[in-house]
Simulated assay, not measured.
Amino acid sequence: MSRLRAVSLPAAAVVLVGGVLAVQVAYGGGTFEPLPPADPCVVRPVTSHSEGMDALTEQLVLIALDDAACTLGVSREALTLELAGPGDPTDAQVEALHDGLLAAVERMDADGTLPPTSDLVDEALDNADLNDLLKTLIRALPASVVDAALPIDDLLTRAIDDLDLRTVLTNLDSQDDLNRQLDAAITQAVKDTLVARVRDLV
């Protein structure tokens, strides 16, 4: 009996697999075609697994790449490959990415996903070149004062306008390098702008 069961189980498995394959083929699964890249001009949700400023810059970069790709008439994947490839970025690419970052700020501001400026102060001050007393005074500022004096959309716009994107996009080795460099550059620009402006409130 056990011998019969040992023979029948593999046979049953073959029948089941064959049945699944037959259904797949019947519904067009016999031909494999890669999915076309997503249309960068269609708004798609953007999320991040990071926190704080890293999460903010990740989302800005992803939205900006979509916006820039839409402007240039290519997919986000194609634009990323071009930017990460050999050679310097073109004027059109740099301008499209800059405008895309500004558009990302507007979109996140409109849909309420931008954090208040006060949420970023501690992180910006952690490695800032300021004496401890000044850092303590800045951290003591009420969140309402910081947010009223330094709207997050204005802060991000200033940081993006001050960013040298051409330098950031030069000499990249890979797509991962592109994302890393953009994230790091924008994060640092935001920190520098935030620290420079918030110290004026003290």
Rank of each mutant, 00 (worst) to 15 (best):
T170D: 07
G52A: 04
V7F: 14
D111C: 07
L165Q: 02
D177S: 03
L156S: 01
L21A: 14
R197G: 03
A26L: 13
T167E: 12
G19I: 08
V17P: 07
L169I: 06
S8A: 15
I152W: 01
N127L: 15
V105D: 00
R139T: 14
C41I: 08
D99W: 04
E106P: 04
Q188M: 09
S75Y: 05
L150G: 01
T71L: 08
D192N: 11
A6I: 14
D164Y: 07
V61F: 00
D111P: 00
T71C: 06
A38H: 13
V145H: 12
T47W: 09
A185H: 01
A11P: 11
L79Q: 03
G100C: 05
D161T: 13
Q93C: 04
F32H: 15
D66G: 05
R5T: 10
L72F: 09
V146C: 05
D91G: 10
T167Q: 14
Q181C: 07
Y27V: 13
P40Q: 01
P40D: 06
A92R: 12
S118V: 08
A104D: 00
G19P: 12
T193Y: 03
A189K: 04
D39R: 08
P151D: 10
T80F: 11
P86I: 06
E106C: 05
L165K: 04
V105P: 02
S50P: 06
L62M: 11
N171C: 12
L194H: 01
V198S: 01
L150W: 05
L62H: 12
I152V: 15
L134M: 09
L137T: 04
N171T: 10
E82V: 12
V20L: 13
A38R: 14
D147F: 05
G87S: 08
R76T: 07
T71V: 08
L60G: 00
A104L: 01
N179G: 12
S118H: 07
G112P: 04
P142Q: 07
R139L: 12
V94I: 11
H98C: 06
L120D: 03
E82I: 14
R139F: 10
L133Q: 14
V145C: 06
A22S: 11
A128K: 04
L163V: 01
R3V: 13
R180H: 10
P45C: 09
P34G: 08
L9I: 14
L155H: 02
R166A: 08
A26W: 11
P36K: 10
V121W: 03
D122E: 15
